[in-house]
């Protein structure tokens, strides 16, 4: 029996499916390739090239940039950066987990209000949020004045321009990025999981430790990546709250590009940050598989 409508043939239908797939995917993916993947290729290529006399690069192959990065001076900076970023991440977890957990206990409409309140500062200007701490923590700032007026201290405390101030600034900037993924992981846990543990004889504390916590772990790791990665490469917080005294790897990279004009060496440092990101993602993906089984990505 012939169809009443004109047949277009299977090839035409296949061609049209391919066309729409191309139309939707190609522009965005081309853009990402051109402005993220190719630039990343540039960074990798630069790490093997030599620095030009007046900045820029010269096409002379070398490993010198890598050996230079192993210099104890730069390794020290890298370790210090990792240490500071890790401190901010751990603090963000210790504060963020109870906060995320508390939010899941609120009625649904209040959960949303609370989440908005927590993310709102994150979407505002980073420089200004960092600057606000100078206003607060300066020797003549609000906190010192308040403490002196209350008679707690007699001399103003130097709260700024030390590593702890950097950790505080990073914590402040990125703690919403820890709370959100932990919250998402926690609300996705079937409440029956905890009840099942209790029904099988666990105390509420055991149920939390043996069931809730492991199931929230993938979310915790996403949060850790979201806090650690922008922290370790940050150069604004060390400059504004660290007073430029504590040099972190972000400051070093910026200086290699804008002051020392040693692009190949700056590229090595930048690549180390990208590698850290990839390693962390790899770990997160593995933990996610282990915790949730193979069925869920």
């Amino acid at each position: 029996m012939a169809l009443a409508v004109k047949s277009e043939g299977r090839d035409a239908i296949k061609r049209r499916a391919l066309l729409s797939r191309t139309l939707f995917l190609v522009p965005g993916l081309t853009y990402i390739t051109a402005f993220m993947l190719i630039p990343l290729g540039f960074i990798i290529a630069y790490t093997f090239l030599s620095r030009g006399t007046y900045g820029g690069i010269e096409f002379i192959f070398t490993f010198e940039n890598y050996t230079r990065a192993l210099d104890s001076l730069y390794i020290g900076v890298l370790i210090k950066s990792i240490f500071i970023a890790a401190a901010a991440t751990v603090l963000a977890f210790l504060i963020g987990f109870p906060v995320a957990y508390a939010i899941t206990k609120l009625p649904t409409n209040r959960q949303n209000i609370m989440l908005v309140l927590i993310v709102l500062p994150f979407w505002t200007n980073f420089l200004i949020r960092t600057y606000a701490w100078i206003v607060l923590l300066n020797t003549q700032g609000f906190l010192n004045k308040g403490l002196i007026n209350m008679g707690v201290i007699s001399q103003p405390l130097e709260l700024l321009y030390k590593p702890s101030a950097i950790v505080l600034g990073l914590l402040y900037a990125y703690i919403p990025l820890m709370i959100l993924p932990i919250y998402s992981a926690l609300v996705r846990i079937d409440p029956a999981m905890k009840e099942a543990a209790i029904n099988l004889g666990a105390t509420p504390a055991q149920a939390f430790r043996q069931v809730t916590l492991p199931l929230a772990l993938p979310g915790v790791l996403v949060g850790a990546i979201f806090v650690f990665v922008p922290s370790v490469g940050n150069f604004i917080v060390p400059e504004l709250l660290g007073g430029g005294k504590t040099v972190m790897v972000g400051n070093l990279i910026r200086d290699q590009f804008l002051k020392a004009r040693d692009w190949p060496f700056g590229s090595v440092l930048a690549l180390s940050m990208v590698i850290m990101l990839l390693v962390l993602f790899f770990i997160q993906a593995r933990v996610n598989r282990r915790v949730l089984g193979d069925a869920r990505a």
Partner: peptide, 27 residues
């Protein structure tokens, strides 16, 4: 609840996804 000689089979089963079958049973 955790001391009652009463066990419940949940509608969603509530199997612990991070534990294998044996560890679920042994929990």
């Amino acid at each position: 609840a955790n001391k009652r000689p009463v066990n419940l089979m949940f509608q969603s089963y509530a199997l612990f996804p991070h534990l294998n079958v044996f560890d679920n049973v042994a929990y």
